[in-house]
Design a protein around this nucleic acid. Structure first.
Lengths: 221, 221
DNA sequence: AGTAAGTATTTACGGTGTAAGTAGAGAGAT
DNA sequence: ATCTCTCTACTTACACCGTAAATACTTACT
């Protein structure tokens, strides 16, 4: 425990797992997951790459830890709301978190070692379904279907990282040399995306489709 | 053009883009996408890594080409079936293709340059929705929602690459040292997955939820 | 036969994750 | 106060990666 007056010898903030993970998240947010190498992350922390291995078990562990940080941002509904409203809020909050950290969605699907926050998130989701008297079999499918939609939409949305302006620009240039006759409906689809629509909301559209369907099945199966 | 009798000097099959892509697919299928490096793929073809660059524009182009191969395996319904049945068959076939080639699903979401087979696939999907009198706005959401579910489920399923036997084994060992009191519903969920269920079908469950919802909206919006 | 075009190879550069060994600082006990 | 143990950080090294550039070789056509 540091006494109030020992700053003169305090060279720099000590390296900790938390600092490593936080810096990793910040770096991946700012420059993309491709920029996150052990050497680069070390440099960011004023340290050599190998020093990180004292706080992290390798790159996979680093990424697992970073993902759990993101999962920690998800708001878990509490209280005794409708199951549907709970599931909806949790899913929307999770989706928001994944969109804030574009590198996290693919880790979500590939990580084999769920961290504590991820477990807490899953536990919460499963609980509110169980509390709504979902049959075990239906509960399982409900949980996974929502999860599939969540990660599927995030990844698809992130895979096309264009804001509407760029979208219009790129779309037009694509259409200029596009085999419209070969793929007429695809061409129409691209044209549709060129017109001004209030984008977004796609996630909640599919989510509501799923939740509606689940509500209909609840009790009957 | 080779004459019938020139085999004596034919050293080896000539390198072509098709052979490169086919071998790439085979290698990724057999040893995982992680094993697919330019050097390794060259070795597989009896050639140095740099030779591949005469037929492929770089690794990204190689992966794009491989993905398009996989998309080519998807069966596109023809004829004048119900839109719902068409969408269902196409999605199931696409899902099967992604499961056959575990490395392809993540390329599906990240590839920026759709190949011809991918375009044909999209065109076909969009056409059968349009033919069913979907409103432009609903058509767009329908297409993307199905697509999201497709890729989301494939990635989630592939991210947990355990056959039921391993599943049972791993699950039990996890449960042995699991904070059951902290995450009771998650524990129950794991236990559920340990019991024998006919696995699979999860994709079609969610798909039908979505298709049912879309059918309900069709015409009314 | 000579030439042009395309294919394959060699070499090289700057990057990656991390195993192994070394140096140094701080705490606790003698 | 000194000695030792432990933990952190650093250095070096290895095998691999994608690919730019320059070179050699094969083939096909004039």
């Amino acid at each position: 425990m540091p006494t109030p007056n020992d700053p003169p010898k305090a060279r720099r903030a000590p390296l900790t797992r938390d600092r490593v993970l936080d810096t990793g998240v910040a770096l991946a947010d700012a420059e993309g997951i491709g920029a996150l190498s052990m050497r680069r992350l070390g440099r960011e922390l004023g340290v050599e790459a190998m020093s990180l291995y004292n706080h992290v078990d390798g790159k996979a562990d680093l990424l697992d830890g970073m993902l759990d940080r993101v999962v920690g941002e998800i708001e878990l509904p509490e209280g005794d709301e409708d199951w549907r409203e709970q599931a909806r809020r949790r899913a929307v909050s999770a989706h928001d978190a994944l969109m804030r950290h574009p590198w996290a969605a693919s880790l979500w699907t590939s990580s084999l070692n769920p961290g504590p926050r991820r477990m807490r998130y899953m536990d919460s989701a499963l609980r509110s379904l169980r509390a709504a008297d979902f049959t075990p079999g239906l509960l399982d499918r409900a949980f996974h279907t929502i999860e599939d939609h969540l990660v599927g939409h995030a990844l698809q949305a992130l895979g096309f990282p264009l804001d509407p302006d760029q979208m219009a620009e790129v779309g037009e240039s694509v259409l200029r040399s596009f085999p419209v006759d070969t793929y007429p409906d695809l061409a129409a689809h691209i044209r549709y995306h060129l017109e001004p629509h209030e984008e977004g909301g796609g996630f909640e559209f599919g989510l509501d489709l799923i939740l509606d369907g689940l509500e209909r099945l609840r009790g009957t199966v």
